[in-house]
Design a protein around this nucleic acid. Structure first.
Lengths: 348, 348
DNA sequence: GATTAGCACTCGCCAAGATAGAGTGCTAAT
DNA sequence: ATTAGCACTCTATCTTGGCGAGTGCTAATC
């Protein structure tokens, strides 16, 4: 905020160097690598100032400086420009593998690995939230004995299925009739409306289909809930490449955290409201109390509504410029692919 | 094979102790903990014999003995009896969390975590192979524009869906007619027969439905292939608890291997033919060239046909007796749950 | 008043040595 | 065949001292 130009330059130099090398940066190294036109003694004074302001710190008395979380924050907010010098990054992205999963799940998995490979961090994707989906079709298929499979289709092509037991007296023909009836009543309605409608109907309906109604109600809930809960983590082993996770204890904690996907979900959901790329540094994030980890998070769309979150989790010392680019690119790519899939069937 | 009774007892004592403690076992420790009625010097001679026969080895001159892979093999084949003293294990299993995923995928994920938690190893499950599944129903649902969703249902309740583009002139009504036609022609046939039938039909059929036929053909392939490829890994972080993976390099290799699920699939598929629990020790397994890892693998059924493999991967130094129990138990549990789900709808 | 040179001081890292402990292998006695 | 005893080996751990990087302070300089 209140940094003069020279201080800014020094801070940036320190952080850039530290990100590149991973070891604390001393005044002499800095004066050699960059040309500030001042001596190492002056740099020491400047660095001492920056430390007092909270942007840098010391691992121990006679070591160089490393950025604090606050330092990284300032770096992200004020020092890096994502726009310029992105040619080489773009070029890098050109060589990236293409995504081509024709199944939604597969696409998500591929994309999470894609993120991981390009960012050298773990890639995380929260499946698109289907709150805007509309009812399209329901199908009841009788299997063996009492078993019936409910297949629930939404307008954007999500298929949810569920196995239930029902009275054997209900025949496939009856089921078909009921399915046609529901299609007529519910078509084009949002899932919320569908549920309300079903509740209303259940009050007046004949008893035979009561159970089917009830199960349909549950299935419509599942579509929303279960899909929403899906978190895809790809390439977690990428993070093991970083020397900061040479510590086994840290690594273990990290993987434990990854297995608790629910927490990750909460974490990523928090940022779903905002547009654009967000960066969470180290302790800034209350849900993921992992020291030394940062997240770069963005949103992707399918159509006009915001529907999903994606991002990467990596060491605080990461190549932010590049990673931000990768997340941005992937978000756009996914938006495009999902758009093609769900929305623009018309103009193809 | 050609070990006398005392040698066997010593070998078992060494391996048991090593599994429990994790550090090499010396003659004095052994003589203190067990009562062989001989002195440490005699034990030294015996252990030297066992080493010569290849069952034990030395990390270095003045260290105790640890088992070789061959030693473990002998231990598994001849020394442990899974039957007896299983009360405490059974009891342990009683407290295990229940599985209740009503979605096949969810069930697999739960079960893999279940395995991991109880065995302190990584749990791995290969989804049931659907080669025995029969055709049950197909549904075409028109979404926006040219898009049509194909929903393919097999007799055991697997639902596969696929999005395709078709000519806009084909109406939902036509699709329904075609679906009814296919249902009639293909009902109760195996997937292989379905594919053959479709090929035959395509030669004689009118052109309009050609594409749908073709896509249906692909979908039937997908059901088999894609489901077969699914490998679920749960609780991989359990393995990090073992001190043998304190080495970061090993850990990294392990997680890399886990990410390459295809290899795991091959590995597990090898043992799909045999009934009962199998143990692969260390280097015995050509596909998973991970030193110091063992696998305990079993099969589970859905109905009368063998359909899936499950198991755990952990350090060679694992609690085999307990782990074998857990894998066995989980296999039976899964068989029961899947049986309930797919087969025995009648008698419920 | 900002900048710089100089210097004492601090701290972590690393290699070298010292020590203790665990365990073996061999030999000679039982 | 078994055992006691002993020399030997190897590891793990602790200590020590030197090295190098880097800081912080002070006094001189621009």
């Amino acid at each position: 905020m209140d940094l003069d130009d020279r201080n800014k330059k020094v801070l940036q130099a320190v952080i850039d160097s530290y990100i590149a090398s991973g070891s604390p940066i001393g005044s002499t190294v800095l004066v050699k690598r960059f040309d500030f036109g001042v001596s190492s003694a002056t740099l020491r004074n400047i660095m001492a100032d920056l430390e007092e302001m909270g942007y840098l710190t010391h691992p121990h008395t006679s070591a160089g400086r490393i950025p604090t979380d606050l330092g990284y924050r300032y770096y992200i907010d004020s020092l890096i420009s994502v726009e310029n010098d992105s040619e080489d990054i773009e070029e890098h992205l050109q060589q990236a593998p293409q995504l081509h999963g024709d199944d939604l799940q597969e696409l998500m998995e591929e994309a999470s690995r894609f993120l991981a490979t390009l960012s050298h961090c773990a890639g995380v994707i929260v499946a698109p939230s289907e709150s805007e989906a509309a009812y399209r079709h329901i199908e009841f298929v009788r299997l063996r004995g009492r078993q019936v499979l409910i297949i629930f289709v939404t307008s954007n092509g999500i298929v949810q299925n569920k196995l239930i037991d029902i009275d054997e007296s209900i025949r496939q023909q009856d089921l078909n009739g009921f399915s046609a009836y529901l299609d007529e009543e519910l078509e084009h309605r949002s899932l919320a409306e569908v549920r309300q409608q079903l509740i209303d109907k259940m009050k007046e309906e004949k008893l035979v289909f009561m159970q089917l109604m009830d199960e349909t109600y549950r299935a419509s809930q599942d579509v929303q809930e279960r899909e929403n809960e899906k978190v895809y983590i790809g390439g977690a082993s990428q993070m093991l490449e970083s020397p900061e996770f040479a510590n086994v204890e840290k690594m273990r904690a990290l993987f434990k955290a990854f297995e608790d996907k629910y927490k990750l979900l909460k974490l990523l959901d928090r940022s779903v409201s905002a547009q654009g790329i967000k960066v969470f540094i180290g302790s800034e994030n209350p849900y993921f109390e992992m020291q030394g980890c940062s997240m770069v998070v963005g949103n992707y769309n399918a159509g006009s509504n915001v529907v999903g979150t994606l991002g990467v989790i990596g060491p605080t010392r990461m190549q932010y410029k590049q990673v931000i680019h990768v997340v941005d690119y992937t978000a756009k790519l996914l938006t495009k692919l999902l758009g093609e899939r769900f929305q623009r069937g018309l103009d193809r």
